[in-house]
Amino acid sequence: MPDNKLKIGIYELTGCAGDALLIIDCEEELVNIFKAANIEAFLMAKSDNNDEVELDVALVEGSVSTEKELEELRKIRKRSKALIAIGICAGLGGMQSYFLDDKDWAKNLKAVYGGVEMIHAKALPSKPIGDFVKVDYFLPGCPIGKEQFLSTFARLLAGNPPELFRFPVCVECKWHENDCLLNKNILCLGPLTAAGCGSVCVNHNLPCVGCWGPSEEANRTAEYKLLLEKGYDPALIKNKMANFSGTSITQFFARLKGETK
């Protein structure tokens, strides 16, 4: 029987499937999710997936790292009204995209796989999905957060775009009245990281490692220099900053390299 419920597909490319798992983990709301929308495809949750149907919203996790995935992604985009990147890998490329340029990638591929020919799918330098298709919205997080996912889902059903925090973790951290770790010379990436997690790590007295990805205005230069001033090793700072930044950090590192020359 036809109905006017939104048609939604959830897809996984190269990633750890953590975002899909998080959706499954929304246990008490799962019935509501399936009631409110027609979940046409969700490999982790069901076997009767329809991969041809036109979609209202596609949620895509993971980066593109094979030609097969690229083809799949293009098809998803073609039949979806809106496409949402969920998680750091889809939105920014994730750790697998953190290499400096394509030449390094080819070298690394050879070092790891030797001369083996890829039968299943030809490998590509891993990239965020936005490098290939138009992404309408990006839900950050490694993995995404339940509250953020559910409220976004509810907004989409009501025909509204997602409403995400655009400021860094520090704001939420202050709402929780935490004493600033950075001011105690602890390497905290809160100022560079998008809010939305509720500053859970600092609430438990652990520094932010940046798992929500860079905030809109992340002032990397200032925090980098501030951490240098506090005596941190440049390589350590760079590694920490890179962890959840995917390809978005490349430019910053290139500029830094230029400055030090």
């Binding site: 860094p168 520090c170 202050k174 709402w175 002032n219 230069t221």
Partner: peptide, 13 residues
């Protein structure tokens, strides 16, 4: 402005 982290902490406190 160049050094400001746009972290909002000053207003929160």
């Amino acid at each position: 402005g160049d050094a400001c982290l746009a972290c909002g902490s000053c207003s929160m406190v």
